[in-house]
Amino acid sequence: DEDSERELEKLRKNNASKEEIKEVLKRLGFSEDEAKKLAEKAG
């Protein structure tokens, strides 16, 4: 959803580590696997 998109955008701009991105995604309700895949894509 839009909030998670914004959250990811912010992380990308701040050069967050894949680990940080994954944690945020998991907080947003993604499964471990989904979060890992998305973090890879974002990283």
Rank of each mutant, 00 (worst) to 15 (best):
R6Y: 10
D1V: 12
E7S: 06
V24S: 07
N15A: 07
S31G: 06
R12Q: 08
K10P: 05
K36H: 13
E9F: 01
F30R: 01
R12G: 05
N15M: 09
L8V: 06
K36N: 14
R12P: 02
K10C: 13
L28P: 03
K22C: 15
K36Q: 14
K37Q: 10
E7R: 07
K37D: 09
S4F: 15
L28C: 14
E23Q: 06
K18W: 15
K13W: 09
K37S: 10
S31E: 07
G29S: 00
L28H: 03
L28E: 04
N14F: 05
A35P: 01
E34S: 03
A16G: 05
L38Y: 10
R12W: 14
L11I: 03
R12F: 15
D3W: 11
E20K: 09
D33T: 04
R6Q: 05
F30P: 00
L8P: 01
L38N: 02
E40S: 07
A16Y: 08
K10D: 09
S17T: 09
E32W: 03
A35D: 01
S17P: 06
K36F: 10
E34I: 07
L11Q: 01
E5R: 13
K22I: 15
E19Y: 03
D1T: 13
E2G: 10
A35V: 07
R12T: 07
L28S: 01
R12M: 13
N15R: 05
N15E: 07
K26H: 06
G29L: 00
K37A: 13
S4L: 15
K13V: 07
E40T: 03
E23A: 08
E34R: 02
L25H: 00
S4E: 06
A42L: 15
G29A: 00
E5Q: 11
A42Y: 15
R12N: 07
E2T: 12
N14T: 08
L8W: 05
K18F: 15
N15F: 08
K18V: 14
S31C: 15
E9T: 07
G43E: 10
K26P: 00
K13I: 06
A16W: 05
S17C: 07
A39G: 02
N14M: 09
S31Y: 03
A35S: 04
L8R: 02
G43H: 12
K26V: 14
A39R: 00
N14A: 09
V24E: 06
S4I: 15
I21H: 00
R27D: 08
A42C: 14
E9M: 04
K10Q: 12
K37R: 14
D33W: 06
G29Q: 01
S31D: 07
E20G: 01
S17E: 04
L38H: 05
E34W: 06
S17W: 04
E20H: 08
K18P: 13
E32K: 01
E9N: 06
L11Y: 04
L11H: 03
A35Y: 04
E5T: 10
S4W: 15
K41Y: 12
K22N: 05
K10E: 13
L38P: 00
E7G: 01
L28V: 02
N15H: 12
K13R: 10
K18N: 08
E34V: 08
G29V: 00
G43N: 10
E7Y: 10
K18T: 13
I21F: 05
K41M: 13
R27W: 09
K36Y: 10
G29I: 00
G43K: 10
G29Y: 00
D3E: 13
A39Y: 06
E34A: 08
I21Y: 06
S4Q: 10
K10N: 12
R6I: 09
E5F: 13
K22G: 03
A42I: 15
K13S: 09
E7M: 14
K13C: 15
R6F: 09
K41P: 08
S31V: 03
L38E: 05
E23W: 00
K36W: 11
R27E: 08
D33L: 08
R6K: 12
K41G: 12
K36L: 14
G43I: 11
A42G: 11
E2S: 13
G43W: 15
E40D: 13
N14R: 11
E9Q: 09
D3M: 12
S17I: 03
K22F: 15
S4H: 12
L8A: 04
L25K: 00
K22V: 15
E7A: 11
K13D: 09
K36R: 11
E9W: 02
S4P: 13
K26E: 06
S31K: 03
E40R: 00
R6T: 09
R27M: 11
